[in-house]
Amino acid sequence: MSYFKKNLTIPNLLSVFRILLIPLFIYLYLERSAVDYGISAGVVLLISGATDMLDGYIARHFNQITQLGQILDPIADKLTQATVVICIAIMHQQNKFLIPLVLIFLAKEILMGIGSLVLLRRGARPTAALWFGKVATMVFYAVMLVIVFIPAMNDLAITILVAIVAAFMVFALIRYAMLFFQLLKATPKK
């Protein structure tokens, strides 16, 4: 079976579709001259989140897990999340509490990426997303959807929602860091 045929799976196509939705979300969300655009951006984000859940389900239940998919899916996730955080920070730039969320998100992703590379260099395989990572992602999407769908939300409400997302991100980062050090300890240096 050729590489192309082996990787031409529904989950991989859904991951590519999610990546292709990113420019559409940016355009619709930042071009907020009409209320319809904000709603349309929210619908695009909902579709992206739904296809994220669907691709994982299909991959596991129909044995369509591929190495390409294991790379594409997290890339689509992180690009989408980064796009949403940055777009919301741009649209609500008067709210200075969004800047720490952007920084926490970037720090979490960079640290987790470095941790994965360290484990791979040692011959260990980084773990798949665990319950605390999935909960943090679900909270992230729920809060971001609320902010996208309610463009006139006041700064206090946005700040509270952002603090909730940041708390879940930090919690997930701490739990993954603990797991990283356990795996690092159990894996001898090459």
Rank of each mutant, 00 (worst) to 15 (best):
R125P: 02
P151V: 04
A34K: 13
G69N: 01
A82L: 15
D36Y: 12
V170F: 09
P188G: 00
A41G: 13
N12M: 00
F4T: 07
R32D: 06
I22T: 04
I22R: 00
F149A: 08
L28N: 10
N95M: 11
K185F: 08
L173P: 05
G38I: 09
L46N: 05
K5A: 07
V43Q: 04
I164T: 06
Q81S: 14
A124M: 06
L45S: 02
A107S: 07
D77M: 01
V84S: 13
R125W: 03
A177R: 03
T187P: 00
L101D: 04
K185W: 07
L8E: 01
Q182C: 10
F97E: 11
V85H: 08
M53S: 07
L183S: 04
V84L: 10
L103S: 08
I86F: 13
S116G: 12
Q64L: 10
A107V: 12
F140P: 01
I164L: 12
V35E: 10
T127P: 07
I75K: 05
F132L: 08
R121M: 13
R122K: 12
F17G: 10
D52R: 04
T187D: 02
M112S: 09
F105R: 06
A163V: 14
A59I: 13
Y27F: 11
K185Q: 12
L46H: 02
D52F: 00
K134I: 01
I39G: 05
D155G: 09
M178P: 04
A50G: 05
G56V: 08
L173R: 07
I99D: 15
A152I: 13
